Amino acid sequence: MTYVKTSITNAAHDSNQAEFDRLGDSIAQLNQTMIKVNMVLDSLKADRESTNQRLTKLETATDKHDVRLARIEEHVIVNKGDKK
């Protein structure tokens, strides 16, 4: 009886050890995947910041052009009124 109990205990221990080994491997793979995901997210964040900076510059340039266009339109309207 003791032999059977010892055999079952050893089998259970070996089975648990194998499960822990597989779990350890899975966790290591997950860790590597998360590192890659974080690298991609960092890259996307940098790209977005760069895009936002360019967009801000474009908006500023557009605002300046809008002001210039309004001044030109005002000048044209004033000159048309003077010619009449």
Rank of each mutant, 00 (worst) to 15 (best):
E49G: 08
T60Y: 03
A46Q: 14
M39L: 12
M39Q: 15
V40Y: 08
L41Q: 11
R68G: 04
V67H: 08
V40Q: 07
L41A: 07
M39H: 13
V37T: 15
A46V: 09
S43F: 05
D47P: 08
K45I: 02
L55T: 10
S43W: 05
E59Q: 13
K57T: 09
E59P: 03
N38E: 12
T51G: 02
K36V: 11
S43K: 09
S43V: 04
L44R: 07
R68F: 07
S43H: 12
D63L: 01
K36R: 15
N38C: 08
R71D: 15
L44Y: 08
T62C: 01
K64G: 00
K36E: 05
K64L: 00
T62F: 00
M39V: 09
M39G: 05
T60F: 02
T51H: 07
T62W: 00
L69Q: 14
K64Y: 00
D42H: 01
R68Q: 14
A70L: 05
R54V: 10
D47N: 15
D66Q: 07
T62Q: 01
T62I: 03
V37W: 10
R68K: 13
D63V: 02
N38D: 13
K57W: 02
D47W: 10
V40P: 00
D47H: 14
E59D: 15
L58S: 05
L55W: 04
R54T: 13
R48Q: 13
R68H: 11
R71V: 14
K57H: 04
N52Q: 03
Q53E: 07
M39T: 13
D47T: 15
T56S: 10
L58Y: 10
T60D: 06
H65G: 05
K45M: 04
R54E: 04
K36N: 11
K64E: 00
S43M: 05
S50L: 11
S43L: 06
V67W: 03
N52F: 02
R54D: 08
V37Q: 15
E59Y: 07
R48N: 11
L41M: 10
K45L: 04
M39K: 14
N38M: 09
K57P: 01
E59A: 09
V40T: 13
D47Y: 11
L55Q: 09
K64Q: 01
D47G: 12
A46K: 13
K45Y: 05
M39F: 09
D66G: 04
R48Y: 11
S50R: 11
V37S: 12
K57A: 10
K36T: 12
D47S: 15
A46Y: 03
R48W: 06
A46S: 14
N38L: 09
T51P: 00
A61P: 01
S50I: 10
Q53A: 15
K57L: 05
K64T: 00
T51A: 04
